[in-house]
Every structure is written in C-alpha cells, then in structure tokens.
Design a protein around this nucleic acid. Structure first.
Length: 824
RNA sequence: GCCGAAGUGGCGGAAUGGUAUACGCGCUGGUCUCAAAAACCAGUGGGGUAAAACCCCGUGCCGGUUCGAGUCCGGCCUUCGGCACCA
C-alpha cells in the first residue's frame, strides 16, 4: 500500500525535527573549507512574497549542495527592520512602527521556516535592535573620526505641507508628495554625508577583483560613478576681471566656445544681476520656472532649453574672444564647477540653446568625410574629427588635440587637466523617527561633538507615537534631545535626524559572523574565518546602491585595519523578478500571489521546486498557477515511484540480479549521466535544467520498471540518485523518502552522489547523417564507433545515397560520436 | 538619448558552431472505471498527402562568414530593465 503524500504532515514533522537537532547551526572549523552563502535579508513588510521564495530557494539549493560536497557553510538570516514603510503603516493603521515591524518579522520568519531553508537561526539579527544599531552608530563615529562623515548643504525634496524631507521614491512622477499630493519643492538643508567620493577610484579599480560578478552590475556601477577625464579652464569675467572656472571633457573644442553658462543656483548669477532691476526680476522669474520645483521635476520632463542673458561677457583664454554669459536650466550646480563653456557646434544641448537664443555657432571639428557648415547644421557633431579654426592646432586630429590643448593650458597657467565623477557623496540624514539616531551632540560652546563610544547606543525612544502628519516626533521629545555636552557638561542638543537604512544594510553581513559580540561590530577572528561572503544573492534592483555602499563600508573597515580584504562579496548572483501577467507583482496593482496559501495547499517543496524550475535565475519569470500544479504532480510521481516501483515490489521480492544486461546498462547510463549533469548545472546556477534532468531520470525509472526484467541493484542506484539529487531542491519530501527507504541519518548529510564517467556514456548513440548540411538520416550505432566506421555507414545508408546521386563527393566532415556531413 | 538584457511551439523554457523545440504546462487519444477524477501509456511547430513513407518551410528582420548558424560577424526592428541635460 502506498501511503498518501501528505505534505502538511511531512513538512511539519521535519521542520520541527531539524530545529530540535540544530541541524543547520554553523561554527568555525579551521580544518574544513568554508563557504559563506548570503541572500539579501528582507525588509519585513508582511509575510514572505514570491520574490523572497525565488531568492531564498535559490540560496538554499546552493547551501545544501555545498554542505554535501564537504564545505562548512554559514547561512544566516536577519531583518532590515528600520525604514519608512513602518512609519507610514503606523500612521494609517494607528500602530507603532516597532510593533508593526516585530509583527511582520514574526510573519515572515514563520514563512521562511515553513519553506525549510537551512538557516542558522541562532544568528538571527534585526537592524532595529539596539545591540545592532549600537554598532551602526559606532561606524558613524569612525567615519566622523576619519573625516568621512561631514555636515554640508544639500538640495532635498521638501514637502511644505508635511514639513519634511522626502526620499526620491516618495516623490511621484508628477512631482507631488506621495502622502498628501502637495507639490514638492527643492530646498537646501544642512545634512550629514558620508564621503564615498573619497573612494571613487578605489571603487572603480577594485572592480578588477570582482571577476565573478555579473558584467551588467559592474557596468551599472561604473556608469554610476561616472569618472571622466578632461580639463578645468579659467575664463575671465570682462566687467570685474575675476576668473570663473569650468570643467570640460572636450578641451579640443575650446576654440568653438561662443557663449558661457552658469547654473541657476550659481552665486555669480545674483552678483551679475545685482543693480539692474529689470534683470533681477527676469532672473527671479527664471528661477521660479526652473528652480522652484525640485530638480527631480526639472529633469523628469524633457524640459526645453531655457535661460537668461546676464548682461556680461567672459574672455576665452586661448583666443581672447569675448562671449556672452547666460544662466541656463540644464546646467547643474552639483556637477563640475557649476559653470559651462558652451560649444554649440559640438554639443547637442549647447546647440539647442544657441538656436533658441540666436547665438552664433562655430565649427572647430570637421568630420573625416564631411564639410560641416554652421548655418546648415541641424544637430551638433559630437564625434572626433580634424581641428579647424583653432589657431595653431588646425589640421590636428581632435583626439590628439585634447592632449595638446591641455599642455597649452597648463604651460600658460590658464587651466589644468582634471577628472570628474558623477558620483555624489552619500546623504545619510533622514528627518525620520524609525531609524538609527545619528550619534552627534550640538553644544553652544564646543560645537559639534560626537557621542563618546562608551555612551552607545544612543537609544531610539520606543514609547513615542508617530505623528499623523508624518513628521518625526524626535525633535519634540525633550527627554531625547536635551542632553549634557559630553565635553563641557553644559546643556546641549542631540541630533534628531536618523540614518538612512542603507547604512544599516551596508555592514550587516559582517555582524552575522559574530552576532552576539559585545566588544565590537564583529569579531575579527570569526571574520577571518568566514569572510568575505563567497556567494551573495539578491535582486537586480540593488545593483547600484546597496552593493556600492557595502563595498564602500568594506573599504573603510579595511582602512580601520579590522580586515585584510577589500571587497565583501566574492561572487554575486542577481535574481530576476517574479512577474504576473507581464507586470511586477505589487499591492497597488493587486496582482500579488502569496506563498503562504501555496505552502498550505500544495506544500513548501512544491513551491520551491516550481519557482526554481520556472527559468534561469537571472531572468524575470512569469508566475503560473497551472505550473505550480505541475510541480506538485512531479513530486507525487516521485513519491509513487519510490513506493510503487521500488519499496513494494522489493518487499514482494520481485527483483533479482543480473537481469537483462542491456536494459540495466541503459538505466545506469541515465543515472550516472543525470548525476553528472545535475552537479554541473547546480555549479552554474542552472537550476531549471537541473530539475529537468532529474525529471528525465524519474521518467527513466518508470520506463525501466514498466516492462522487462529489473535488476535490483540498478534500481536501487537510480532511485537513491533521484532522492539524493532532488534533496537540495525539495528537502522535506526527500528526507521523508530517505527514511522510508530505511536509510540511516539525514539525506541532507549524505555525501553528494558521484558518477562514473564510463557509465555516464550511453552504450548506443544516434549517428546523424547530413548531405550538404541537411539531415538526411539517423542511425543508431554503438557509442564507441570509430570515425572510419561512421563514414562508411553514412555513405552506405539509403537516404544519403539518394541525395548524393551521381554528384561528386567533395568532402566528408566527421564529428566523432555524433555526425557525418557529406558535401557534394 | 545613453547603457544593459531579451526576442525560439498555444504557454514557461532547452540547445560547447553539429539532430531546433529537451523538460514541464496545456491540448488530443488510449488503458483503468458504471461514470468521472486521479494515475499510467502514447501523440502534439507549420505546410503538402486520405494516410504513411517522404519532401518543403521554420529560432524578430536583412545581409555575411562556414561543409554546417538559434548560436559567430555587420546592419536594422521590437520589448523589458537601469540611468537620464554629468559639460
């Protein structure tokens, strides 16, 4: 009698047993090679969703596989528990962010446990735990000591109605506040920054160490850092003689400058307009048009070129020409020097501006095959060419001209070579409640004073209510901000901003190596054993920020002398999204399917198997309800295979030994070939095809036991291979079957099955015969056939002869063991 | 606009330059059953033929390299994702 495949009973039983036995606890063991496998920890916004299942299932296959090939594996789990959604939920539900967050941690951890992931739960961490954020604050202090944390002015999205700064994600595409719909404005505020730009070059150069990262992530980071080479050039203001510096990547176009631009926020704009009432109001109007709204909106709509002539001129150092100065909407104050030399012939933006304001265009680079005429141009020519109208440089290829013009600038003191980065410093202040307080105190006499390390953590008071308008309650809470200056003891005021949650997640992977450590953020000995992370897994949406910030933190920790490696994640796998009806699942679209109901109805094993079988990990995958049923069908098939095709007949003594040798050899060949293929596929993260191979093996066992003699040993080998190979994918059912088969111990602790190369080769192969590259015949031949025999058989076969006919055979191409192509 | 990924059956997807569509879903037929479901077995790209043998056409489009191209090269088109006036 085949027992029922009762997934609920089975999964509950093993979940409890593994937990009791501490089956997945990890401890350093210098005698064994280690693997640190980490999947990005979740933000606990509710129960687990399908994206989590996809990510964590993938990691779990690797973890279980690595354990079985002999690695000591660290596989921890924790929660990114600070953050804005908790505050928003608190406002709308009337709860407290802490309560909301902890409830959600309960929900999601229950799901993760039910899904059977092999985490070392003793290492669970939560970033909102004071024992965690104590060290987040400690890192802030270290940054401050190193001069890497500083306070500066920044443009921020400000909602006048909510009275708070908004993150970019909270500003809707029409420039309004996500919560109240008010138009967001840009406002300059004094904020804390981390000086990530100090590491811009290191972050670029060390990408060489990231050989096992996806190329697309590296490209995205490279573009984000945006290093460019060029020159800084001083232009002289005609009226006052003061110099204004510009940055350009095209010194070779310096002779083509016909006007000069300042960012609307550039201090010189006001100075130039001052005294001329008409100009002053014109500038004010212009600022209203472009600067009143946030730069978010200014760039979101493909804004038309706009600007105001400021009534003054600057002198171009290389040719002494005088050109007009404008302020323009497309010039960014935060990039370069906030001033731009405009070369309309060779820059599309400048071109558009010149056409609109009727400014002359002068061609100074001629294309190789062309004859550009400034009148006739319809767009700028931005590619290299030959320099013209450029004094002594005429006739020079522009790529060489770049260097020569730089030499000219430097020898005359007009400017110098320079590099620029698109990367900005990291703004870490948030006017938020639910985050780690910034450990800084402001004292009237001592100024900015860091909280002494011994006073950490600066506790976030949890007995406060979030205000209905979304503002942080901290600046109103005297018991929080009123504090004695640690230096002079006088009354002082605590910083009430909290840190960006990306700070929390920039170092959590270090905490996992020693989550209970009280002496430091992590134990250096434990870190030496476990770090760096060997395999990091996460969504592609974190390709830039989280991964870049983490790399930055690791470099700081390296410079603190706490570690001896420079990159935190040796190998990276980026998961695609799970989509439904062609769209990303989201609550607002109402197209969410939650794992919980599937675990109840079909089982965690089914869900895991389905999501892994769906497609390659790095691509986005379409969810299908019918597909899940298919996964369940396959597991039932495996269940019945073990009981009906193996255990029951075995008990009845139906199988003998040395039965039909050919059938047995063919079955063994499938088994060994499957072990080989599945192993290779797991190594390459090709989990979908790994599952296919196991399915084929199961089909093979059904065929083998469906008719003809069955060899007992051959069957045992095949059935055990199925259960062994499938175990990392569907741990519960395999553990149950392993036990049913009378095996000792856990299937998850068995050595990974090995294969015999000789047996993996099939006895018979299909020889393909082509004539002129077209398949004309397929012949079953022994796999050890020689090239000569292949050729002879191909030339003899009827269909090939038909197509050869009377034609002359010019060439015969032989692919050993596979194919013969006859060229006539 | 720039960067990246992807276009293959009804669907998810397989294919070191060597049998295109493995595996799964769906569908069709059969076995079992009073019947159905489940299960098991078989079939399933399009066209030609009553049917089979067999032949032709087929991996977004147009060319090229090659004995042989889904795969390599050149030029496009479409979709998705990221960045977006970075001088």
């Amino acid at each position: 009698m085949t027992p029922e495949y009762d997934h609920r009973a089975i999964e509950e039983k093993w979940m409890e047993r593994w937990e009791e036995e501490g089956a997945y606890l990890a401890a350093p063991d210098p005698d064994r090679p280690k693997k640190y496998v980490l999947v990005m920890y979740p933000y606990p916004s509710g129960p687990a969703h399908m994206g989590h299942v996809a990510n964590y299932s993938l990691g779990d296959v690797l973890v279980r596989y690595y354990r079985r090939i002999g690695f000591n594996v660290l596989n921890p789990m924790g929660y990114d528990a600070f953050g804005l959604p908790a505050e928003n939920a608190a406002i709308s539900e009337g709860s407290h962010p802490a309560t909301w967050t902890r409830n959600n941690i309960e929900l999601i951890s229950r799901d993760l446990k039910r899904l059977g992931y092999a985490y070392d739960w003793s290492r669970e961490i939560s970033t909102c735990d004071p024992e965690y954020y104590r060290w987040t604050q400690w890192f802030f202090l270290k940054m401050y000591q190193l001069g890497l944390a500083y306070k500066g002015d920044a443009e921020a999205n400000w909602c006048p109605s909510c009275g708070t700064v908004l993150a970019n994600e909270q500003v809707l595409s029409d420039g309004s506040c996500e919560r109240c719909g008010t138009n967001v404005v840009s406002r300059w505020l004094n904020q804390w920054f981390f000086k990530i730009t100090h590491y811009a070059d290191a972050l670029l150069e060390d990408m060489e160490l990231l050989e096992e990262w996806p190329e697309r992530v590296l490209t995205m980071q490279r573009n984000w850092i945006g290093k460019s080479h060029g020159a800084e050039v001083d232009f002289t203001l005609e009226s006052t003689g003061e110099t204004i510096r510009v940055y350009t990547t095209r010194p070779d176009t310096l002779y083509g400058v016909t006007f000069f631009l300042l960012a609307p926020e550039h201090p010189l704009v006001d100075k130039l307009a001052a005294g001329d009432a008409e100009l002053e109001s014109e500038v004010a109007e212009f600022r209203e048009r472009v600067g009143g709204v946030s730069s978010f909106e200014r760039t979101a709509l493909e804004a038309e070129k706009d600007g105001v002539f400021l009534g003054d001129y600057v002198i171009n150092p290389v040719n002494g020409e005088s050109v007009p100065v404008y302020t323009a909407n497309f010039v960014l104050i935060e990039y370069g020097t906030g001033a731009v030399m405009a070369v309309p012939a060779h820059d599309q933006r400048d071109f558009e501006f010149a056409r609109k304001f009727d400014i002359p265009i002068e061609v100074v680079i001629q294309p190789p095959d062309g004859d550009l005429n400034s009148e006739a141009m319809t767009e700028a020519y931005e590619d290299p060419g030959t320099m013209v109208n450029s004094g002594e440089f005429d006739g020079l290829p522009s790529v060489l001209g770049i260097e020569d013009v730089c030499d000219l600038l430097e020898s005359n003191g007009w400017g110098e070579r320079a590099v620029n980065y698109r990367l900005r410093d990291w703004l870490v202040s948030r006017q938020r409640y639910w985050g780690a307080p910034i450990p800084i105190i402001y004292c009237d006499s001592c100024g900015t004073v860091p909280v002494p390390e011994d006073d950490l953590p600066v506790l976030l008071p949890e007995d406060l209510d979030v205000r209905n308008d979304g503002r942080s309650p901290l600046p109103l809470e005297k018991s929080f901000f009123e504090v004695a200056c640690p230096r002079c003891g006088e009354d002082a005021r605590r910083e009430t901003d909290t840190m960006d949650t990306f700070v929390d997640s920039s170092w959590y992977y270090f905490r996992f190596v020693s989550p209970q450590d009280r002496e430091g953020p992590f134990d250096t000995g434990d870190a030496e054993y476990w770090m760096p992370v060997d395999q990091y897994i996460g969504g592609i949406e974190h390709a830039i920020l989280h991964l870049l910030y983490s790399r930055f933190f690791t470099k700081v920790i390296y410079d603190l002398g706490l570690i001896d490696f420079k990159e935190p994640f040796s190998r990276l796998l980026c998961q695609g999204m799970i989509i439904l009806d062609g769209a990303k699942m989201s609550k607002s679209k109402g197209n969410v399917v939650t794992p919980g109901e599937y675990i109840d109805r079909l089982g965690a094993d089914t869900l895991r198997l389905y999501i892994l079988f769906l497609g390659p990990p790095e691509l986005s995958k379409e969810w299908s309800d019918q597909g899940v049923e298919g996964a369940r069908k396959f597991l039932s098939r495996v269940w019945r295979m073990v009981h009906e095709r193996y255990l029951t007949p075995m008990e009845n003594g139906e199988f003998g030994r040395g039965a039909d040798e050919h059938r047995g050899r063919a079955m063994r060949s499938i088994t060994h070939c499957t072990i080989k293929n599945v192993t290779a596929d797991i190594e390459e993260f090709a989990f979908n095809t790994a599952v296919s191979f196991i399915m084929e093996l199961v089909n093979g066992v059904y065929r083998y036991t469906s008719g003809g003699d069955v060899d007992r040993e051959v069957l045992v080998e095949s059935v055990e291979a199925v259960v062994n190979l499938l175990a990392p994918f569907t741990p519960f059912i395999c553990e149950e079957l392993w036990q049913a088969m009378g095996k000792q111990g856990s299937v998850h602790q068995q050595p990974w099955p090995s294969f015999d190369e000789e047996l993996a080769r099939p006895e018979k192969i299909t020889l393909v015969v082509q004539v002129n590259g077209r398949v004309r015949e397929r012949i079953i031949v022994p796999s050890d056939i020689s090239d000569e025999e292949m050729k002879a058989m191909a030339l003899e076969c009827e269909n090939a002869r038909k197509f050869i006919g009377e034609k002359e055979i010019r060439k015969v191409i032989i692919v050993p063991g596979k194919l013969v192509n006859i060229v006539v």
